Amino acid sequence: MKTLFKKSAIAATMISGLIAGTATADTFNASLNLVQPISLTEATQMDLGDVLASDSDTCTITTGGARSGAACFGSGNGTLAAINVAGTDGQQVDIALTAGTSGASELSFAPAMLDNGEGATTLTGVTLQTNHALYLGGTLTVANGALALSNGVNSVEYQVEVTYQ
């Protein structure tokens, strides 16, 4: 019985030694899709034209640069912003506009997209194309015209955010 036990132990040790000594290795590939970082450049700066420093009045610039509202001074058109978006063609992106302020509280500006989303501030699932441009307008609200004049305010900020889905 002792001999049988010894032989079984030796056989088990030899088999486990053979198994532990048998190894294999191989190389595998992981696929990926390189995507260009998104970049934004301002091709044309928005120009709201002449605006009256009249409290609580607005001036809105829309398609073709047309202006309307009590704060719009004169009859001329403004200029829409043209923002070029570069990235990987065919990828889906989301676009969001954020309202801006100028100074403490003199003026506020609510931007709006005028291409593929008349007046929208967000678009989702837009397919990025070669030479993709966003045309933007919006509404300027004069909160404190006297303060804006004394501080020499002549611009308002807004933010454009474009992200891949």
Score class of each variant (00 low, 15 high):
T101E: 08
T141R: 13
G74Q: 07
E161Q: 12
A104D: 15
T130M: 10
G87M: 03
S102F: 02
A133T: 14
I95Y: 09
V126T: 11
F109H: 00
G145P: 09
G125A: 07
Y135W: 07
D115S: 14
L123C: 04
P111V: 05
L149T: 15
T139A: 10
T141Q: 12
P111I: 01
D89C: 02
V142A: 10
P111T: 03
G152E: 09
N154G: 14
L123N: 08
E157L: 06
A96H: 07
N116A: 14
E118W: 07
A104Y: 12
A104R: 10
L128D: 05
G78D: 07
S155H: 03
H132F: 15
E118D: 15
A96E: 13
L134S: 02
N116S: 14
S75I: 13
S155E: 05
L149K: 12
G103T: 05
N116E: 11
G76P: 05
T124K: 11
Y158S: 05
G90M: 05
L147N: 13
V153Q: 10
V126A: 08
Q91W: 06
N84A: 14
I83A: 08
A104P: 13
F109Q: 00
S105D: 14
T88P: 02
S150H: 02
G145T: 03
E161V: 15
S105H: 09
Q92N: 14
L149W: 01
A112W: 13
A110H: 00
V160C: 06
